[in-house]
Simulated assay, not measured.
Amino acid sequence: MTAAPIALLTDMVSAAAISTLSAARGLPNTVFFVSSRAALDRLFEPFDADRPWPGRLVAFYSDVVVPQRYLDAMSLEPVNIHPAPPEYPGKRALEFALRDRVDAYGVTAHVMTLPVDSGPILSVQRFPITPGMTEEALRYHTWRAGFALMFGLMPALAADAPLSPDPALAWGTRDCSEAAWQAVRAEQSA
């Protein structure tokens, strides 16, 4: 039996790194790159809930919102690697965390659902923010943590089996959307 394919919704460099390292781990899945909403549309064009796509979609630090009809057209749960801990759901998580002067940050792997950053959480990778850490350094550590989380989950993501969310992990209620961030910026400049 052939292993289910994995489609990586991410940038080209991340897709190449993840694909190369998953092959080095001996995972039998075909891993391919989905670069944009248009590429996602092409991938799911022939599939629907009655005839699902036979693989797993994994979004890695992607801003593309996957439509519900595509989420319904998958035989395996889609996963998102979110570049923030569960306390910071949304696109502008890092900016809010910096504003809050938190002493730790992290990344979250979760089952993809709508609304975004709300699905059952599979795992979280955290790291400390050291005194004087710049925004650039924090972004670097966030990328490193994301790759570490992804590689740790690869055997589960490669399996043709349901995933096991961690019931002890839950999303925070903080709104870290683009609109919320723009409202904060407008308030600061007023």
Rank of each mutant, 00 (worst) to 15 (best):
V79Q: 01
L169S: 13
Q125E: 04
D166W: 15
D50V: 12
A170H: 15
R174S: 07
L153R: 05
D100W: 09
P131F: 01
Q68A: 11
V65P: 02
H110N: 08
V102K: 06
Q68D: 11
F151H: 08
T30R: 03
E135K: 13
S22E: 14
T10S: 08
I81Q: 07
L163S: 11
S177Y: 04
A23T: 14
I129R: 13
P131I: 00
W181T: 00
A161S: 14
N80Y: 04
A156T: 06
V13P: 00
R56C: 02
M74P: 00
V66P: 02
A170E: 15
D100Y: 07
P155S: 11
R69Y: 05
I6R: 00
F127I: 06
G132H: 10
R139F: 06
A16R: 09
S164M: 13
P120D: 14
S19Y: 12
E187T: 09
F47T: 11
L71P: 02
S19N: 13
D63F: 12
L163G: 09
D175T: 13
D72T: 10
V107E: 01
P115F: 01
F96M: 04
P46V: 08
P165C: 13
R51Q: 10
P78V: 04
A183V: 02
L169P: 14
R185V: 04
L57S: 01
A23F: 13
T134M: 12
T108Y: 04
L21F: 15
F44D: 13
A161V: 10
V58P: 00
M150W: 02
A4T: 04
F96K: 03
T130Q: 12
E178A: 08
I129F: 05
W181E: 01
W171I: 14
R37K: 15
P78A: 13
P155C: 13
S123K: 11
S75F: 00
P115T: 03
Y105N: 00
M74I: 03
S36Y: 00
S19W: 09
A137N: 14
L40V: 14
A104V: 04
F127G: 03
F151Q: 08
P52L: 00
I129D: 02
G132Y: 11
V111C: 11
L138Q: 15
A104Y: 09
E77Q: 08
T142K: 11
G172A: 13
D175K: 12
R25Q: 15
A59N: 02
E77F: 02
W171V: 14
D11K: 03
R101A: 03
M74T: 04
T130W: 08
P162V: 06
I129S: 05
H141R: 15
Q188H: 03
V184S: 02
A15C: 03
D11V: 02
M133N: 09
V65M: 10
S22A: 15
P85M: 11
A73C: 12
Y70M: 09
P28N: 01
T173M: 10
G55A: 00
P54Y: 02
K91P: 12
A145Y: 07
L27D: 05
P78M: 03
G172S: 10
A161C: 12
R101H: 04
P162C: 08
E178T: 09
V107G: 00
P162F: 06
A180K: 03
R51E: 06
N80C: 07
K91A: 15
L157D: 05
A104M: 07
H141Q: 14
A23N: 14
A3G: 00
